[in-house]
Amino acid sequence: MNGLALHRAGYVPTSLGRCFVEVAGEGPAVLLLHTAGQSGVQWEETLRRLPTFGFTAVVPDLPGHGRSDPARGGPVEDVDGYRRACEEIAAGLGLECFYVAGVSVGGKLALDFAVHGDGRVLGVVACGAEAYNRKQSASGLRRAREGSASPSAAERTYYGTLASVGSSVPADRAELIAARHRREDPLVTATDLGAWAVHDLRGRLGKVRCPVHLVAGAEDFWIDLDDVRATAAEIPGARVTVLDGVGHYPMEELPDFPERLAAWLRELEEAR
């Protein structure tokens, strides 16, 4: 059976509206969570190749993103809201247990799953995320929700994304990543970043009961590597991997990310 035959997609109802979800493969399920303002397109390569390593890739567009409905009640303002929607997606798909991997606000969401996880969360790979991000200004992001305070949003997102990828990424690949990001709804992106900025998991990580792997790009200026290490130190048994030449979007920047993710997931399996 080829990969395409195993690939299925559709809408799953949640209390925030219908969410578009792609699923591929067989084996343990891995919820793959995208970054602020983005969509499951960021996981396109992982969706295609993770199944070859014996995992089921589950890629939702978060409420208000990509092909999902605009979030009921307006853009989601907190990470908890996204986690509850993802739990509804998992339930809707009939997933009894699953791994969670995410990047940036998706990484923070993955960490949130680790904190709140009951036995259903098998393990977490959190990329570009720490327990608390000190680099964002919640008040500035609040203002940035208004177009009157946030001019040239598409160009700033485009150039800001180019600036955020690592030096190991070829120019044509960086261009593709930045062009994907330019499609964002700036209101949703600013709201997501605001949710990221205020979500504070410090002091709550000691109760994490699933294995956690924190992954950071060495050139990711959105996060603080010392804070990533401090986050790992709070989580029993957590590992940290720093990726040289990589910025804020490892799943889009690294050609071999699916292989690496599969290896990390196997380590989480063994750690259980």
Binding site: A149, P151, S152, R156, Y159, G160, L162, A163, S164, F221
Partner: peptide, 29 residues
């Protein structure tokens, strides 16, 4: 030309009308 990375890491900064500065991001690149 990684001007914007250097802005975002604090090597360059701006004073004055912040809106106009943001508006001209591409112009500055």
């Amino acid at each position: 030309n990684d001007y914007l990375r250097r802005v975002m890491t604090g090597r360059f900064s701006a004073t004055g009308n912040g809106y106009t500065y943001q508006r001209l991001t591409k112009t500055l690149v």
